[in-house]
């Protein structure tokens, strides 16, 4: 086979897929903002995505905050800057670690489940059945997931911020012998509103991407159990990569100057 043709074909496939995802995303957003809405389903997805992800996000951010305090202490001690530990922990958590780690964990937990559930509905004709029962699958299946994920990720990340900072505090005060009051005051001292807000904006975008990829791959899955398996993998992989790319782009937008 001609290697150039193979590269060209791969590139064309990439462009076609990008276009399909774009169309899917705009259809999904369109159905999110137009009635009818399904409050019952949106609530169920909130519980599924938000509430049940709390333990995972809590554990992840707790230990990230703890290890961050430990690592930055050993690093900063080399040039006598131990006092910066609290600030480093809070800035890293709010701006970067909480949104990205929560995003990746939720992508693995929720994105995979969405792709598997919608994919199974596709191959067992449940999505066709929805259509014949005068229900638009975009409104019934996809919009509730996209709405719930986009709103619940920032809430999860806000909680994650607090738990992460608490993790840093625990290590700082009980292991590294910082004064508790000093640690808290230097945590707050250099923290700006924008640090937290940028993290929450990131989280909203990540939540949207997770739901979009889970739904897109599930909705377009083909060919039985193997197709659903592939859809699940693709949902997690593409969502994770898109989270990391979007993370850079958003950081660039917020802190360019």
């Amino acid at each position: 086979m001609n290697p150039l043709a193979a590269i060209g074909r791969g590139f064309l496939t990439l462009l076609a897929t990008t276009g399909r995802i774009g169309l899917f995303a705009s259809a999904a957003i369109g159905h999110c903002v137009r009635p009818p809405f399904y409050p019952r389903l949106i609530l169920r997805q909130f519980i599924e995505i938000g509430y049940y992800s709390l333990p995972v996000v809590g554990m992840t951010t707790l230990f990230s905050g703890m290890v961050l305090a430990l690592q930055s202490y050993t690093g900063f001690a080399r040039f006598s800057a131990e006092g910066a530990v609290a600030t480093v922990v809070v800035l890293s958590m709010t701006r970067e670690l909480a949104p990205v780690l929560a995003g990746l964990m939720v992508a693995g937990r929720v994105g995979a489940a969405m792709a598997a559930e919608i994919g199974t509905m596709r191959v067992t004709e449940q999505i066709d059945a929805l259509t014949t029962l005068s229900t638009n699958p975009f409104k019934y299946l996809i919009a509730p997931r996209v709405i719930a994920a986009t709103i619940s990720l920032p809430i999860l990340v806000l909680i994650g911020d607090i738990i992460g900072v608490f993790g840093g505090y625990v290590v700082g005060v009980y292991k590294l012998d910082f004064n508790a009051a000093n640690y808290i005051s230097s945590t707050i001292q250099y923290l700006e509103r924008m640090d937290v807000i940028s993290g929450l904006v990131k989280a909203a975008v990540f939540g949207f991407l997770i739901a979009l990829m889970g739904c897109y791959h599930g909705y377009n899955s083909r060919g039985g159990a193997q197709g659903v398996g592939a859809a699940t993998t693709n949902a997690v992989v593409t969502a994770s990569i898109m989270i990391l790319v979007a993370n850079y782009v958003i950081t660039e937008m917020f802190f360019a100057d």
Binding site: M121, T124, E125, Q126, D128, A129, L130, T131, T132, L133, S134, T135
Partner: peptide, 26 residues
């Protein structure tokens, strides 16, 4: 489509809903 009813080959029942909600869905 509202004039139509359809019996799918595999049943295509919504497994997230109880039987009566499946029947009453339309």
């Amino acid at each position: 489509m509202r004039k139509f009813g359809m019996l799918f080959q595999g049943g295509a029942l919504f497994d997230s809903l109880p039987v009566w909600e499946n029947v009453a869905f339309g």
